[in-house]
Design a protein around this nucleic acid. Structure first.
Length: 281
DNA sequence: TTCCGATGGCCAC
DNA sequence: TGGCCCTCGGAAC
């Protein structure tokens, strides 16, 4: 269930916990059986995240690239691991830790050059300390499609998924239908700030909880998932800011959630046209 | 027990 | 734009 925050959290945990250990690798499911021997016996040297992509650097220049897609999960075991599910694509085991990866969209070995080429195709990652907001702004402004569509384009900004898109546009009070090419600098600043805030909080806490989520978020027993969010998955529930029912519309095959009032399209500035039949002074 | 939808992304048309 | 792949939790029966 990954957006960029989850991947960065995984990278941070793996760096702290797994780097320096030597692993054996196998593929209970069999679909990584040909590659697993190339990892076995190698020491993990580093773990990096870029957007939704995770890179494990093993000694000898062997890179494991994982993209969890919509369904992928990584299970961690500090000591005794439970038997892997039949769908477990890759199991990495050391005496102190075991990882079980299942359902990834991508699980492959890369050379350092191939990893660099892949990362070069990705947009700025707001979670990278050296991310360039100027490049991100310029990349978004090249898109004529709605900003909601542009935000999911990983070659523009990397790591934003459907939840972050909805919550960040809401926090920035931007209409999801605004053409990205019409984005103004102050709009982008609010959007970038919202993205960074949501991603950083979620990477630390392990889940996305917007700062202005309804007061029921995470507190009431039996709470529903949608109570965690301001607009995502809250169709017809009141906007936490103005109580207008949250709208849900399909956009490019995904559900888009927004408040029709707080995120109303901005009105075009009225053109200065001289009144008919009246001379200018 | 069965079915459905989901925080992605690729491909064909 | 729609179909498809990957897996699994929870809703529906």
């Amino acid at each position: 269930m990954p957006e960029g925050n989850i991947i960065h959290r995984l990278a941070r945990v793996h760096r702290r916990w797994l780097v320096g250990r030597r692993f054996t690798a196998d593929s209970p499911q069999g679909r990584f059986a040909a590659e697993a021997p190339h990892l076995s016996g190698r020491v993990l040297e580093d773990v990096r995240a870029h957007g939704k992509h995770l890179f494990h650097h093993f000694e000898g220049g062997v890179r494991l690239h994982v993209h969890l897609g919509l369904f992928g999960t990584i299970r961690h075991f500090r000591a005794q691991a439970t038997p892997p599910s039949p769908a477990c694509r890759l199991r990495l085991a050391s005496p102190h830790a075991t990882l079980q990866l299942s359902g990834p969209q991508t699980c492959e070995l890369l050379t350092p050059d191939a990893e660099a080429a892949l990362r070069a195709r990705l947009g700025e990652d707001p979670l990278h300390a050296d991310a360039s907001r100027e490049r991100a702004f310029a990349a978004l402004r090249q898109v004529r499609a709605p900003i909601a569509t542009a935000l999911l384009d990983q070659s523009r900004i990397s790591g934003v998924g459907n939840i972050l898109r909805a919550e960040a546009l809401f926090l920035a009070r931007l209409s999801p239908h605004l053409p990205a090419s019409d984005l103004r600098a102050p709009d982008f600043e609010r959007l970038w700030t919202a993205l960074r805030q949501l991603l950083e909080d979620a990477a630390r806490d392990g889940r996305i909880v917007p700062p202005h989520a309804p007061p029921t978020a995470l507190t009431l027993p039996g709470r529903r998932r949608e109570d965690r969010f301001c607009v995502y998955d809250r169709e017809d529930l009141p906007c936490p800011h103005c109580a207008t029912p949250v709208a849900r519309v399909p956009l490019a095959g995904r559900s888009l959630f927004f408040c029709p009032r707080c995120q109303a399209p901005r009105r075009r500035a009225a053109r200065a046209r001289p009144a008919p039949g009246r001379a200018r002074p």
